[in-house]
Design a protein around this nucleic acid. Structure first.
Lengths: 240, 240
DNA sequence: TGCCCCACGTGATTTGGATCAATATGCGCT
DNA sequence: AGCGCATATTGATCCAAATCACGTGGGGCA
C-alpha cells in the first residue's frame, strides 16, 4: 500500500524518501469503497484527511435549487480534504466516482508529522498551489469558453494529470466519468454534453466511451481547448 | 507602512507579533501605482511577491480570442503572486484596479523568513486554503448561477472581505469595479452586467455606483446570491 | 428469462445572455 | 470652457445552451 501511495504521490516530488515513507506510514485504515460512496458529506464532523490510492473521486457543492457543481477531481495519489481538515469547515462533499481504495491520515498524525518535518508543510502548500491553478483554469473555462472548448479543456487536463502519475498510455487513458458527471463539472446539461461528445467523435478528434478516453488528434484537441498545460506541474520544484 | 500592512494582514491572525513584524520588515521598495498598472504580466520574469497596502488589484488571464477572465481580486493586506513566485511560472497577469500602494517581498527574503520561522509557511498555506475556497465558490457561481445571482454573490464576497479587514461600514463599502471589470470577472458582458445592476437597484436590493456599494436589503441580497460566508475566514485558526 | 434501472441518444421548443447599434454622461486635460 | 475618451445606458435581434419529451440499449438481479 505504501508503494501504491508513494508511486502516485503527485506534487510531492521534492520530498526525500524518509518524508515520503513517513507520510505513507502515517496512513491508517485502508479501505475499499464502491463507486458513489461519500468520504465527506456537508454536515459531517470533519476529521481525517483521506488519501486516494486507487480510483477517482470528486468534490462537489449542492445549490439551494438542488443543482450540483463539481469543483474538483481527485486521482490516485491525491489528498482529498485538506481544506476541510485544516479550516475545520465543511463546505463541500466528496464522493468516489469509481470503486476506490482510500486510506485516512488522522489529524493527530498529520499534526505530528508537520511538526517534525517542516518540509511537509511546504509540500502541502505547494501541492495546494497546483490545485489552485487547476481551479483557476476552471474559472477561465466556465467564464469564457464555449461548451466544446470546456469539454476539450477538461479532457486535456485530466489526461495530463493521469499521464503525470503514470496512468496514461499514448493518447489514451481511463476516464471514468459519466456524461452527467461531466455536465455537473462543466456547468452544462447532460443533454448538451452528449451532443458535444458526439460532435467531437464525429470530427474524429477524441472519443469518450465505456469509461475511457482516446485522443485521436491531440493537437486539434489542445487547440480547441486553448490548452496550455504549464500550470500542471508534475512535481513542484522546491524554492528552498 | 508596517502598520498599514499589519493592520490589514488577513488570514494571518495566528502569527505572533514577532512574525508579523518580520514579514512587514522584509518588505522593500514601497511604491504608489496608478490604476491599471501591471504588477506582473504574462511573459515577465517572475521574482518578488507583492503585498498590497492600499488599493485593489486583480489577477486575470487573456484567452486566444482576446477575451479576458478575471480570476481573483486582491484587497489591502493580500499577497499578490505567491503562485508565480513559488511555481516559477507566470500563467496570469496582475493589474491594479485603483491607485495602489504596494511593497515587494523579494524571494530571497521570503526564503530566509520561511527557513527561520516554519510558522510562516503554515500561514501562507492556510491563507492559500482560503483563496482556494474563494476560487471554488467562483466555480460554483460560473457553473450554476444565473447572472443576477452571480453579481449578488460577488458583491457579498467582496463586502465581507472588506469588512474583515475593517474597510467596510454598515452595509456600505468602497467597491472600485467598473461594469467592464465585473463582466470580466463573472463571465458576462458589460451590457448585461449593466442591466443586472439596474434591476437590483430598481428592486432596492443594492446599488453600485461611483465606486461604492450600498446594500439596502442584506438578507434579500444574500438570499438571491445563495451566499454562505462560512468559507471566508477572517483568520485561519491554527491546527497546530 | 424477463424486468427494471441507469446511462446514453436525439428531436422540438424555449430562453438567458450575447451581439449589434446607438446614445448619454461624466471626467481629466488643454 | 470645451474637446475627447472611458464608462454607462438602452433597444433590437440573434444564438448557444437549457428545457422538455421521448426512445434505446446494456447490465444487474429476481
Amino acid at each position: 500500500m505504501s508503494n501504491a501511495f508513494v508511486r502516485h504521490l503527485s506534487g510531492y516530488g521534492h520530498l526525500d524518501d524518509t518524508e515520503k515513507a513517513l507520510l505513507a506510514g502515517a496512513c491508517r485504515n485502508l479501505r475499499e469503497l464502491p463507486a458513489g460512496a461519500h468520504l465527506i458529506r456537508e454536515g459531517d464532523e470533519p476529521d481525517p484527511v483521506f488519501v486516494i490510492l486507487e480510483g477517482w473521486a470528486c468534490g462537489y457543492k449542492i445549490l439551494p435549487d438542488g443543482g450540483r457543481q463539481i469543483i474538483s477531481f481527485m486521482l490516485p495519489g491525491d489528498f482529498c480534504d485538506i481544506h476541510i481538515a485544516i479550516l475545520q469547515a465543511i463546505d463541500h462533499s466528496i464522493m468516489t466516482l469509481t470503486k476506490a481504495t482510500v486510506a485516512s491520515l488522522p489529524r493527530a498524525e498529520m499534526e505530528a508529522l508537520i511538526q517534525a518535518r517542516p518540509m511537509l508543510t511546504q509540500a502541502f502548500w505547494w501541492s495546494q498551489l497546483v490545485d489552485q491553478s487547476i481551479s483557476r483554469s476552471w474559472i477561465v473555462s466556465m467564464g469564457r469558453r464555449k461548451s466544446v472548448e470546456r469539454v476539450a479543456h477538461l479532457m486535456c487536463e485530466l489526461y495530463i494529470r493521469m499521464r503525470n502519475i503514470g496512468l496514461a498510455s499514448d493518447h489514451e487513458c481511463r476516464m471514468p466519468l459519466t456524461q452527467l458527471v461531466l455536465a455537473d463539472a462543466l456547468g452544462l446539461t447532460p443533454v448538451h454534453v452528449n451532443r458535444v461528445l458526439r460532435s467531437l467523435k464525429a470530427a474524429k478528434v477524441m472519443e469518450l466511451s465505456h469509461g475511457s478516453l482516446q485522443i485521436l488528434e491531440p493537437e486539434k484537441l489542445a487547440q480547441i481547448a486553448g490548452f496550455d498545460g504549464n500550470y500542471l506541474h508534475e512535481r513542484v520544484h522546491g524554492f528552498v
